[in-house]
Every structure is written in structure tokens, then in C-alpha cells.
């Protein structure tokens, strides 16, 4: 097994570069056949694998600052693949893939108990409250590589796993075992006009994501880069999505601190 090192696909999102334009969301919806509703303004019942949050520093005018925070699935590793959502699924409809680090979701296996949604603190997992529908004619532009999901099941961001499968198959046909960094990229990464999203193998020191955050293998991949942070680091979910920000209040918004910890900043 030594010759093929397990991969750990991860993402780095530079919040200093993110403009909140929403292109990542649109690219994701188009790539992954996310359904539409006439009124999709209640974000708690609408399906969107990628969601851009709008954060403010809470200071009064004119010292108010904003920051947009795109949130795909964190693909939590937890401890040894014990991610919050995977272990709770009663029907084995979701799995942590040790060879890629991606949390899968089997739509035809899910029977909609929503325990995984209760387990996920990032609201990544979303339920199909309605039958999936698309605007007229848009059904013709659905992506054939991604299955559509039926009413009553949970779905979530897959790091565009179908792209990985396609790229791997292509490489294998060409007699290669390993993928180049740019052969497998998620739709949101490629679409971001600001170049704020970087995607790659966190286990590969040659990949940009590894160089940007310098994950610490002794602390579950905690970033060594002081500008980098992960959402809710303290919960031990061990996500594979990292954020970069030069602003302290943004980094601090990534986690919860009790008052006594007031002035210190982690990492």
C-alpha cells in the first residue's frame, strides 16, 4: 500500500479575495443539478450545496466591515474518519472515503431521517423538501454525470466527485496512476473570478493547498499558517476546507470563544 499514498482532497478559500459575487454558487448549481423553486429566498428550506455567508464585524457605522464566506461541505475527517455525520447515518447511506477524504452521500440509500443534518453544525446537509424542479428548458442542460435527487432525501456538496472519477478513468486509460493537480478541480474552484478558491490534495506537498495552509499532521491537519483557519476548529470535526484572512475578526468568527479568552487569538 506504500506506493499509493491516500489522498486528502481539500480546499483553501481566501476570504481577502472573495467578493461575494456568488459565481461559485451558480457554478455549483449548474454542475450538480441543484433544483430550483419559484421562491428560494428561505435559505433554510432551499437546496444549495455552496452557500455564501455574509459576515460583519458588528461594529457601528462607519467602522462596519463585511466579509463573504463561501461554505461548501467541509468534508470533515473527525478522528480517523469519524466525521459528525457519517457515523450517525442509520442506513449506511454516507461514507468517509479514506482514499480521497471525501464524505459521500448515496441518494438512493438515504431514506430521509435527517439525523445527519442534526449532526452537521455547518448546515451543509440539506433536505429535499419538494420534488426537484427546474425552470423550463433547463432540464435540457442538466449535467449527465450527476444524478438528480428525489424528494425526501438529504444531499450535499461532494467536492464534484464525478470529476475525480472522470479524471481518474482518463488517467488510467493513459496508463497513469496519479492525477496532475489541475486534472481534478471542483466547479466552484474553476468558476471563481477572483481566484479565491484553491483545490488540491492536502497530503501532497507539491500541491498549492498544502503550501498555502501547511496542515499540521500531528494536530489533525490544523493549519500552521497563522492566516489560515478552519470553521469550528474546536469541535474536533477536522474539516478539509481552510479559510485565509488577514483580518483578525474574520479569523475569530470562525470559532467560538468564551469571554475569558477575550483577547487571545488562536493560531
Amino acid at each position: 500500500m506504500k506506493h499509493e499514498k491516500a489522498k486528502k482532497f481539500g480546499m483553501v478559500i481566501d476570504l481577502d479575495k472573495c467578493t461575494g459575487c456568488g459565481t461559485c454558487m451558480v457554478a455549483c448549481m449548474a454542475e450538480n443539478n441543484v433544483p430550483f423553486r419559484e421562491d428560494d429566498t428561505d435559505k433554510l428550506i432551499s437546496v444549495a450545496w455552496m452557500r455564501v455567508y455574509r459576515l460583519t464585524n458588528g461594529k457601528p457605522f462607519p467602522h462596519t466591515e463585511e466579509c463573504f464566506l463561501p461554505r461548501p461541505c467541509m468534508q470533515c475527517e473527525g478522528h480517523d474518519g469519524h466525521s459528525p455525520c457519517v457515523s450517525v447515518c442509520p442506513a449506511t447511506a454516507t461514507d468517509y472515503d479514506m482514499s480521497t477524504g471525501i464524505v459521500s452521500q448515496i441518494y438512493t440509500r438515504c431514506f430521509g431521517c435527517r439525523y445527519c443534518m442534526a449532526a452537521c453544525p455547518y448546515h451543509v446537509r440539506q433536505f429535499n423538501w419538494w420534488d426537484p424542479l427546474w425552470p423550463e428548458k433547463m432540464t435540457e442542460s442538466l449535467n449527465p454525470d450527476v444524478s438528480v435527487r428525489m424528494r425526501g432525501v438529504v444531499e450535499k456538496c461532494s467536492f464534484c466527485i464525478h470529476r475525480y472519477q472522470t479524471a481518474t478513468q482518463k488517467a488510467n486509460l493513459e496508463g497513469r496512476r496519479e492525477l496532475e493537480e489541475d486534472e481534478y478541480q471542483t466547479a466552484c474552484t474553476q468558476a471563481c473570478p477572483a481566484g479565491a478558491i484553491t483545490f488540491g490534495d492536502l497530503n501532497n506537498p507539491g500541491h498549492a493547498v498544502h503550501q498555502m495552509v501547511k496542515p499540521d499532521p500531528n494536530h489533525g491537519g490544523r493549519p500552521k499558517n497563522p492566516k489560515a483557519f478552519r470553521l469550528l476548529e474546536r469541535l474536533g470535526t477536522n474539516p478539509k476546507v481552510y479559510y485565509l484572512s488577514s483580518r483578525k475578526w474574520v479569523r475569530r468568527a470562525g470559532d467560538n470563544y468564551i469571554r475569558q479568552e477575550g483577547s487571545q487569538n488562536h493560531s
Binding site: T19, G20, C21, G22, M25, V26, M29, A30, V34, F36, R37, D39, D40, T41, D42, K43, S46, A48, V52, R54, P135, M138
Partner: peptide, 26 residues
């Protein structure tokens, strides 16, 4: 950033991606 502001309308993709701080219901 997520709304076409001229006479050209925003497509469903943009309306779906619109923040809840801009449009809620109708």
C-alpha cells in the same frame, strides 16, 4: 453583485443565489 441592475433581468440562477438579506419571499 448577484443582481443584474439594468433592463436585462437576472436569470433564475442569480435569484436562487441571492442573499437572504436582499430578497425574502416577494
Amino acid at each position: 453583485m448577484r443582481l443584474a441592475s439594468g433592463y436585462i433581468g437576472s436569470p433564475p440562477f442569480l435569484i436562487k443565489a441571492l442573499e437572504a438579506t436582499i430578497l425574502k419571499g416577494n
